[in-house]
Amino acid sequence: MQTEKRGAPVPTGPPEPARGGRGAVTGPGAAAPAVPATPSLLGPEAARDRYGFYRTLRESYPLVWDGRLGAWLVSRYGDVASALGDPGLVRPRRGPCCWPGEVWCEGSPQEADDEAFGVLREVSERTAFVLARRLARREGADLAAEFCHWLPVGTAATALGLSCAELTRGSRVKGRRAGPAAALAVLCADRSALIGKALASLLANLLDHPGEWAAAAGAAPGALTAVWGESLRRNPPVHVVLRRARRDARTAGGTVPAGAAVALLVGAASRDPDRFANPDRFDPRRTAAAPLAFGPPDCPAARVAELQAECAVRALGDAMPRLRWAGGFRPTETGLLTRAPRTLLVRPAGRPA
């Protein structure tokens, strides 16, 4: 991890005599003098206001030992972006593909061609259309549970020739269909929960901004890339990526010692004002670099996630042009490592409560 040129406070955590220069610190286990209470990802401040907690970390604790979590917290964009590709920070032996920094499918025979993606697009369009039309007849609906969850699951199941129940029981490897599209569906089936969370955050952002919703719902195919990317930046589905330091790793706030656990806070980095102007604002017209939320754009599952987002917005906009929040409802994110609104209560016809 490279050091940012920015005034940083001395890192807070269990110290021992510095190694490797001023500001070097180590992990737990050393005899240490009393230190002020420090933030914890498991504490009440983070539970009450996650993004306010992230702001405190970036400004005052760019590197801090979280004793309750048992890991060093890294929160600034420069550090997190660098750390995700740092071979000195060990990934799980086999982690979840398409989390930030986890691209296990890269270079594998499961990479799919354009024809396979075309098949997945057709299946996603049909699935989104059916789900949206069913909800359009209702007085009220929960888009998170009744649409965002089922779109990725239904797409994968249909592409494999399985029922949704069979897919959720783990029968995807025994799908009734074969070929590149089926292989792509198998790859994406394990990412369905993550895609569903990203879809829920996308819809929350758009419905919070009726003008953006109207523009996105009527957009031409392929025109939602910026909207999708901005939603992934502002509300990434993965907030925390865990690593272990193989060797001492330098950050803006000091040095993580070899052997220590590290929590890379993607959710904090994605709202770093040193990288993004007005970072709390949802602004699809940003020109900043791509978000850290998924694997690289050519990762198969990340590509499928984006095409499903496009299918979702177009289907909902077509079936429910007056879609609005239910009276008095406000979406709220939940989760520790991954986060998204658990419910999205809407009135499909846009009628007042």
Rank of each mutant, 00 (worst) to 15 (best):
K197C: 09
R91F: 10
A165H: 10
G70E: 13
V304G: 04
P221D: 10
D298V: 02
A8F: 06
R347T: 15
T343E: 13
R250A: 15
T3P: 02
P36C: 05
R176L: 14
A215E: 15
E166N: 10
T225C: 02
R126Q: 14
V119E: 12
G222Q: 06
N205T: 03
A24F: 08
S171K: 07
G317W: 04
L345Y: 02
R138G: 02
L206V: 04
W104N: 10
R314P: 02
A277K: 11
P300Y: 00
R177D: 01
V103H: 03
A353Y: 11
Y54M: 07
A32E: 13
R50Y: 11
R172I: 01
P87N: 06
P14W: 14
G317S: 09
S201H: 10
A34E: 13
G295N: 07
A215Y: 09
E111D: 11
S82E: 15
P341M: 10
A132L: 02
I195D: 00
L151R: 02
E106T: 01
A185H: 02
A18W: 06
T343S: 13
E212V: 03
V35G: 12
A326C: 07
L323S: 04
L232K: 02
A290P: 09
W325T: 04
P100F: 04
I195F: 02
A288V: 09
Q2A: 15
A261R: 11
T12V: 12
G295P: 04
R191H: 06
H239G: 05
P87A: 06
H239I: 01
L41R: 10
A83N: 12
A159C: 05
W213I: 06
P9H: 10
G88E: 13
R48C: 08
R6D: 11
G161F: 07
V153Q: 00
P92C: 12
V266S: 12
G218T: 08
D49Y: 11
A293V: 01
R169V: 03
V80P: 05
L84R: 14
P96T: 15
P87Y: 04
Q308N: 05
T158G: 03
G218I: 07
P348R: 06
P44F: 12
G20Y: 02
K174M: 11
G88F: 11
A290I: 09
L323I: 05
A263P: 10
L242G: 13
A189S: 15
G328Q: 12
T38L: 15
V186F: 04
A289F: 03
P221F: 09
Y61N: 04
R233G: 03
L202F: 08
A312F: 00
T251Y: 10
R134Y: 01
T225P: 00
Y51G: 06
A81M: 01
L41V: 14
Q308T: 03
G253Y: 03
G328L: 13
P257A: 15
V119Q: 06
A252I: 07
A156G: 00
H209W: 05
G118N: 15
A216K: 01
L232F: 02
L120W: 08
A156C: 12
